[in-house]
Design a protein around this nucleic acid. Sequence first.
DNA 1: GTGCGAATGATAATCGTTCTCATTTGCAAT
DNA 2: ATTGCAAATGAGAACGATTATCATTCGCAC
Lengths: 148, 148
Amino acid sequence: MHQPKHLQDAGLKSTLPRLKVLELLENVEDRHLTAEAIYRKLLEAGEEIGLATVYRALTQFEAAGLVTRHHFEGGQAVFELERGLHHDHIVCVHCGRVEEFYDKVIEKRQQSIAEKLGYTLRDHNMTLYGECHGPDCPGQKKKGPAAG
Amino acid sequence: MHQPKHLQDAGLKSTLPRLKVLELLENVEDRHLTAEAIYRKLLEAGEEIGLATVYRALTQFEAAGLVTRHHFEGGQAVFELERGLHHDHIVCVHCGRVEEFYDKVIEKRQQSIAEKLGYTLRDHNMTLYGECHGPDCPGQKKKGPAAG
DNA sequence: GTGCGAATGATAATCGTTCTCATTTGCAAT
DNA sequence: ATTGCAAATGAGAACGATTATCATTCGCAC
Ligand SMILES: [Mn+2]
Ligand SMILES: [Mn+2]
Ligand SMILES: [Zn+2]
Ligand SMILES: [Zn+2]
């Protein structure tokens, strides 16, 4: 339970819907959520909020640096609470599980590639897609004890 | 002027609209085009084709391995003719210019990161965003001879 | 408590892309 | 060259994600 007074510091008026979205992002287990998932979870928690407001709040949080938006495969953007530590992602193509990683060698190489090509690097998107081998992942063909 | 007989080889019936799209991709200067850009160019060239057909052709070409689809920033997907050589991209945030590159160190590192995290790597997306310094790029603040 | 500009939320609109379906095409067998 | 028919086309409707509109409500300084 953090105390999300961050809003005023970020130049945003502290309103109830915004606090609800921020609180959810701070306390939910899965860091990477679509706007609709956030909306649904708030409704399930008995909160009264509109989807448009969730989108607006997330966009404002992003502009304020409180939240990061990612575009993985599959239409919907996902949002995560910013923790100040840059990282990239690997996503399971079967179950959608997301892991984070940071690789200094890659980051440096990206920088020097940009320079070599005459660009000033401003940002990058690196997402790996693979098959996780978690027991709950539908990508794991379950070998029954007898051949079937 | 290539001879795009590739279609039958790829298991696709050789139809006029498909040939037109493929021919354009083979002969156009800019490798990376949106579906609408392709559609527009064909119309400008006097061809008669529908946007839905362009989308369909590109999707089929992608499934057949003739074309690759990328999702850079900004809504529209871009397509490019496959040349068999994997590469990644750097895109200018001002003028949209695209350069390609391939970095063996990064590719290897992606593989070992995936392994370390327990994934079997299947694909990846790496796009760098930066400011190019081309003379025509609107990101270049034109310094006039006198201070303004 | 009042007042007012900012925020909200229901809904319409937008944008890129895919789907529907009546018409046309490619092509193989006559 | 015809014919036949499944596959392809294209105009427009439909779709999913996100944003815009606008009447109502809220946050907050007085
Ligand atoms: Mn993350
Ligand atoms: Mn390319
Ligand atoms: Zn998985
Ligand atoms: Zn540029």
